[in-house]
Design a protein around this nucleic acid. Structure first.
Length: 905
RNA sequence: GGGAGCAUAGCUCAGUUGGUUUAGAGCAUCUGCCUUACAAGCAGAGGGUCCGCGGUUCGAACCCGUGUGCUCCCACCA
């Protein structure tokens, strides 16, 4: 069979993915094996996957595939998140483009559009996941608004309500005027901005005091504010009780500018005398601090804003105009009236809605809240006790702990349609009951002996839906129906999941809350390990975003480089826990790596083709004597030189396996990949295959060929979790077989023989050093050389000689004899090697190199000597350390002697 | 304002309880090769005041202190 020049991913990828699915390799049923479970962080159905997802999914697939090949019953559950506010915002703007207003639609009509949207983007996402090669169990696909999932969320809401953890009440919340909904604290992003601080005059009212104020000073006070448009909501001004400047204002009132509303002057320790003018306006409806002060001093609340951020009737002026427009107008008006004393630049932090990017307004509103303190404690313990371990822990343990220790109640209601509707029913008088269904609610109402219910009056369901995270926090449980059907076989088998792989940005939104839900509903952690990936940035370190145009399209990349190369490229540059600088160059590197594997396959296929051809010829040859003789001679010679290559690579492979296992257990996936990369490129291709490569026109020794194939299978298996497609393809091209690499089990760990590895390193060193000399002296590859090695261990060369000769094109190697002619001396380790050649050589250059080495070694010896002659060192250091230093000393001395000898020649 | 993390080659990073470390890898760079698997390749090479300063120690890239510079998280001072 003819192999293409280079590896072509497109055909291969679809072929194997289809095959794996047909064989049901990714589907999981509980059985006697240990389970290895991962629940995918369900991507939002707001759009397509970006590079951050790509990184996350790749990491999960690597872990799952490794586990699948290591005896586990692996289950990777795919799914998507309805992403309440984010998706609703997208659907609303999509409708807007089509000229449809949300206000003109009924809830049902709107939901129909939303589900269409979900269907479209959900499928794109699933397609992307499949193209990337993710081995998810497609039978388990879950959406956070599936029927059972919806029920689970409702059930949990009712349960928490009955436990007294959910309550309804008017509180100061974060209001998103664009989406017209409440937000949780976590959904507000604070950004530094330079704003303005306006100093505004408030006139002092004199009605209770007949004395005429003589100085202008007491006719008005000056108050600083960043938000002059809120003055109409002022219901007091406040100073520190110890502030003498304002002592005489006790019991007096001031007039709110523009609307001339009289509000009292009050006193509270909250006010900092040093800051601003030392007196502050109190606007209870639009600032959390003011609200608290208002409560304390019994102030009325005047809400001057409508839901959409325009001024309300209560504002009296500029009604219906947007707050930021009004700000400008009010400033202008104040200035005109001489009430604006000054403006100064002021840097502050402003809260923006994470989803709509609108400036969030603090607002008093009746919402549903979840008490967090009780839920937080077990979640905190789970991490501090080490039941759940976070990677990288040093970075996130403290953050996690801090948040849970200071957690506030969670506002869980949203004024949206896309989501689980809150299961609370109200009667005409506004009395409500919480229940899973209307029937239950009716029953609940009658239990409360409401006369209205008994007569069968109409109940209205709460219009609001739940925060999207109030559904996602059940994800690891309800994907196995653990809430709706507690104690079922699957939840018992798969829960808790092994590892959660997600972005560090949702540690509070999701990770901590899943742990809470897990502890509350399963009395068990939801996962053992949390692996946080960093953020994907572009080459220049900028965040990837649509507006910058630096966020590449995943399917595009797969088409261009192949899925394996994309996976390789992203993993090779993803240091554990750090941000990843995405550079297409690394995908290019992945493509090259694919090609390297492909070419190794071509080489081996070539060997086998020649071998088969030969076999056929031999069987056709009735005499066969000649062929037999030739094989005997060549075979023996090749064989002895191949022996070492084989035993060396066997050990090198074992060594790499152990290292990779260790690294992967520590989630150091990038380093594990580097280890495998180097094993394949350097050790297998550059060294091993070259060592066993037969001379031109000759056949490979059968043993060497067989082992080369076995080793190839071994390295394919190691790299498979990272690059599933090409490895499966090569595995099958290597020889005909029934089994598939994707489920090939790793055998037991075999520890490598250190001595053989050392010997291999020595051989590589010697070869490289001699090649260096050849390079520097322009000795052409065809030009042969002769080697004279001075060594105490000439016997160690018994097995290395043949390889050495072949790799440096030496006619012969002689031990402990001097060359007849001038030769280039080099020192490798403790051995002196003289290279004799027929061509002109640059002795001066070589001498320089030796002198440089000598310099280094002398300096090195010096530091060792200093240590050994230091009394305190000899007394304090551990014996093995001293022994080591002595060895360093003697080694260095031997090397120096060798070099000095060489220089004398 | 509070907290966390980081600083090692041009770039991205290793360096696992302080001792074969006068420091490694990949990429990039340079030199020589179209050598019969692979020029998407082969064989080599060069490149570092381990952020500055001080300390602990027989010994510091590693531990402590301090300064500087980045990054991130949290927070209701008008």
């Amino acid at each position: 069979m003819e192999l293409s020049k280079n590896y072509i991913p497109a055909v291969t990828e679809d072929k194997w993915y289809t095959h794996w699915l047909a064989k049901n390799y990714f589907t999981s049923q509980p059985d006697s094996r240990p389970a290895y479970t991962i629940v995918i962080p369900p991507p939002n159905v707001t759009g397509v996957l970006h590079m951050g997802h790509t990184l996350n999914e790749t990491v999960q697939d690597i872990l799952i595939r490794k586990a699948r090949m290591s005896g586990f019953n692996t289950c990777w559950v795919p799914g998507t998140d309805h992403a309440s506010i984010a998706t609703e915002a997208k659907v609303v703007s999509m409708l807007q483009e089509r000229g449809i207003k949300k206000e003109d639609l009924s809830r049902e009509e709107f939901l129909k559009y939303a589900f269409e949207w979900k269907e479209k983007y959900g499928n794109i996402i699933y397609n992307q996941i499949a193209k990337l090669g993710c081995s998810v169990d497609w039978n388990r696909t879950t959406f956070t608004m599936d029927d059972h999932y919806y029920k689970a969320v409702i059930k949990v809401f009712v349960d928490l309500y009955n436990k007294g953890l959910i309550y309804r009440g008017a509180r100061m919340i974060n209001w998103d005027p664009a989406a017209k909904t409440a937000l949780s604290d976590e959904e507000v992003e604070h950004r530094d901005v330079v704003g303005k601080l306006y100093y505004i005059k408030y006139k002092v009212v004199n009605e209770n005091d007949n004395r005429q104020q003589t100085t202008d000073k007491f006719n008005y006070i000056v108050i600083a504010t960043q938000r002059p448009e809120t003055i109409m909501g002022d219901t007091a001004v406040c100073a520190n009780p110890g502030d003498e400047r304002y002592g005489n204002l006790k019991g007096r009132s001031v007039l709110v500018p523009l609307i001339d509303k009289a509000v009292p002057v009050i006193f509270d320790n909250y006010v900092d005398k040093e800051f601003g003018t030392g007196i502050l306006k109190i606007t209870p409806a639009h600032d959390i601090n003011d609200y608290n002060i208002g409560l304390k001093h019994n102030l009325p609340v005047v809400d001057t804003l409508n839901e959409d951020g325009t001024m309300s009737e209560a504002a009296q002026i500029y009604v219906g105009e947007d707050r930021f427009v009004v700000r400008k107008k009010i400033v202008a008006q104040l200035r005109e009236k001489g009430l604006l004393v000054k403006e100064e630049e002021y840097s502050t932090r402003i809260g923006y809605s994470q989803r709509t990017n609108a400036v969030v307004e603090p607002k008093i509103s009746t919402q549903w809240f979840l008490k967090m303190k009780e839920l937080a404690q077990p979640a905190l313990d789970a991490v501090t006790s080490g039941k759940v371990s976070i990677h990288p822990g040093e970075k996130f343990n403290a953050t996690y702990k801090y948040w849970l220790e200071n957690v506030k109640d969670w506002c869980i209601s949203r004024q949206l349609w896309w989501g689980q509707q809150i299961p609370a029913w109200y009667d005409e008088k506004g009395r409500f009951t919480v229940a899973e269904t209307e029937e239950e609610a009716r029953k609940g109402m009658s239990d409360q002996q409401s006369p209205l219910i008994k007569t069968g009056s109409i109940l209205t369901r709460d219009e609001d839906v739940l925060d999207t995270w109030f559904s996602s926090w059940l994800w690891p449980i309800e994907v196995f129906n653990g809430i709706t059907s507690p104690g079922n076989n699957e939840i018992k088998y798969y829960y808790p999941a092994s590892v959660l792989v997600t972005g560090q940005d949702i540690i509070f939104f999701w990770v901590s809350r899943m742990i809470m839900a897990g502890m509350e509903y399963m009395h068990e952690k939801p996962f053992s390990d949390v692996y946080f990936t960093g953020m994907v940035r572009d080459k220049q370190g900028r965040k990837m975003s649509k507006s910058l145009g630096n966020s590449p399209d995943l399917l595009h990349l797969i088409r261009e480089y192949g899925a394996d190369a994309v996976r390789f490229g992203i993993m090779i540059s993803a240091p554990a826990g750090n941000d990843l600088l995405f550079d297409e160059g690394s995908l290019e590197q992945g493509k090259h790596f694919n090609n390297k594997l492909w070419n190794a396959l071509k080489l081996i296929k070539m060997w086998s083709a020649r071998h088969e051809q030969d076999e056929t010829q031999k069987s056709q040859d009735t005499n066969g004597e000649l062929g037999k003789d030739n094989e005997a001679i060549n075979g023996n010679l090749e064989k002895s030189s191949n022996d070492f290559a084989i035993i060396w690579f066997q050990n090198r492979l074992n060594e790499a396996r152990i290292e990779v296992d260790k690294l992967m257990k520590e989630f150091r996936l990038s380093e594990a990949l580097k280890t495998i990369y180097s094993l394949i490129w350097d050790d297998y291709c550059s060294w091993f295959l070259e060592w066993i490569k037969p001379k031109y026109g000759q056949n490979i020794d059968q043993n060497a060929y067989n082992d080369a194939v076995i080793f190839f299978e071994g390295i394919l298996q190691l790299i498979h979790p990272y690059m599933p497609f090409i490895t499966e393809e090569i595995y099958h091209l290597l020889k005909e077989r029934e089994d598939d690499l994707v489920v090939k089990q790793f055998g037991n760990t075999i520890f490598p023989d250190e001595e053989i590895l050392q010997l291999g390193n020595k051989l590589k060193d010697v070869i490289s050093s001699i090649r260096d000399v050849r390079n520097k002296n322009n000795i052409k590859p065809k030009e042969s050389i002769r080697l004279y090695i001075e060594t105490q261990e000439s016997s160690s060369y018994n097995t290395l000689q043949q390889i050495l000769k072949r790799q440096v094109n030496a006619e012969f190697v002689k031990f402990n004899t001097s060359p007849g002619n001038a030769a280039i001396p080099i020192v490798v380790g403790k051995e002196k090697i003289s290279i004799e050649t027929n061509i002109e050589i640059d002795f001066e250059g070589q001498k320089e190199k030796l002198l440089k080495d000598l310099d280094y070694l002398k300096g090195f010896l010096n530091t060792v000597d200093r240590k050994l002659s230091n009394d305190k060192f000899v007394r304090n250091a551990k014996p093995e350390v001293i022994e080591l230093e002595r060895k360093k000393k003697s080694d260095a001395e031997e090397k120096i002697t060798m070099i000095e000898q060489s220089l004398q020649q």
